[in-house]
């Protein structure tokens, strides 16, 4: 009666235990690197050499 449930529960969770960390790490690894303040936002007009952003 309950044994099939335990099996389903175990299988579902082992799949998620592999899938979710992979999704989480991929999401972090592939996120955009947003522009930071020490570089120009416009590549065709780089910051002057003495400019302090």
């Amino acid at each position: 009666m309950i044994q099939p449930h335990r099996k389903i529960h175990r299988r579902v969770f082992f799949v998620l235990a592999l899938l979710l960390p992979a999704l989480f790490l991929s999401g972090i690894a592939f996120r955009y690197s947003w522009p930071t303040t020490n570089m120009s936002r416009n590549p065709t007009h780089p910051l002057p050499s003495r400019a302090k952003p």
Partner: peptide
């Protein structure tokens, strides 16, 4: 069986947070 869907909801929410909030908030 119906309430085991909580694991699906959890997986969806981990995706929601990882691909949403964690993309814009670094």
């Amino acid at each position: 069986t119906l309430h085991m869907l909580v694991y699906v909801a959890y997986a969806l929410l981990v995706g929601h947070v990882t691909l949403g909030l964690l993309q814009s908030e670094t």
